[in-house]
């Protein structure tokens, strides 16, 4: 028998994933705290003042990373949803559910910080343009996913229904990403491009990347905390929970 296969499927079982997740949480939390401190220090203190926007541009150090995370988390949810529908593994649906509230939080923060940036720079908290509207739809997709799952009593059926919504909704992510190219929009273009040399100061780029990595580590830690709650709630009556869950 193939050993790597054995190991992966071992952790696809909630009972064996639960203690592993518990051991991983402190590490991801510590990494998140350290990266957050470094990213905020560089973003708020070290990075130079912007020639056009003064200190107001510093919103970029939270706005861009939370917006990236809101899109990325939805893609990860779609990945777990596809895995769950293909292999019918219970943990996949739990992971999809565990990520949704954090994704909703980041989508909300993206809109919130965007409004606080738009007001001083554009003169408006909100405009109905392609980038902003598609990001608002992403927020509603997260809320729709959470509401749909909450409305179905049987967790396995809730997982399946949620997985289909996650997979259909993922079409919105490239629409958000490319909206600034496809339509005329008030929103500026991509802050960081894979194909072009960075157009911003290196310290600005470094601050943004540190913040993005910090939110990554935060998301992993929080999703693992939530998936442990979900596992316990669903398996409260099983023997292993009674024996081991207190650890």
């Amino acid at each position: 028998m193939n050993h790597s296969l054995v190991n992966w499927f071992k952790f696809a079982s909630p009972a064996s994933f639960y203690p592993l997740a518990g051991r991983l949480i402190p590490y991801f939390a510590a990494v998140a705290m350290a990266l957050l401190a470094a990213g905020l220090w560089i973003g708020l203190l070290v990075a130079p003042t912007d020639a056009q926007q003064g200190e107001g541009y510093r919103i970029i150090f939270v706005h861009v990373p939370v917006s990236w995370m809101s899109m990325f988390i939805y893609c990860v949810m779609a990945f777990w949803a596809a895995l769950g529908l293909s292999f019918n593994t219970r943990l996949s649906g739990m992971m999809t559910s565990a990520l949704a509230p954090t994704g909703a939080l980041f989508a909300f923060l993206s809109l919130w910080t965007g409004a606080l940036w738009g007001k001083p720079m554009w003169g408006a908290w909100w405009v109905w343009d392609a980038r902003l509207t598609s990001q608002l739809i992403l927020f509603f997709l997260y809320l729709g996913f959470i509401a749909l799952q909450a409305a179905i009593d049987d967790p396995r059926r809730a997982d399946k229904a949620g997985a289909i919504l996650a997979l259909v909704g993922v079409i919105n992510v490239p629409i958000i990403y490319f909206s600034v190219q496809w339509w005329n929009t008030l929103h500026q273009g991509a802050s960081v491009s894979m194909t072009k040399a960075p157009s911003m100061a290196h310290t600005m780029l470094l601050g943004m990347l540190l913040m993005a990595l910090a939110f990554w580590a935060y998301t992993i830690a929080v999703a693992l905390m939530r998936v442990r709650c979900i596992i316990l709630e669903r398996e409260l009556t099983s023997e292993w929970v009674k024996k081991n869950a207190m650890e």
Binding site: L44, G54, G56, I59, L105, L109, K119
Partner: peptide, 23 residues
């Protein structure tokens, strides 16, 4: 923050609050 205190701290503060509340 060069006169942008409300906007910058409103953004950073909302993120901090959201994360603390979630945990």
């Amino acid at each position: 923050m060069g006169g942008y205190a409300f906007y910058v701290w409103g953004s950073v503060g909302a993120c901090a609050l959201g994360m603390v509340l979630e945990v």
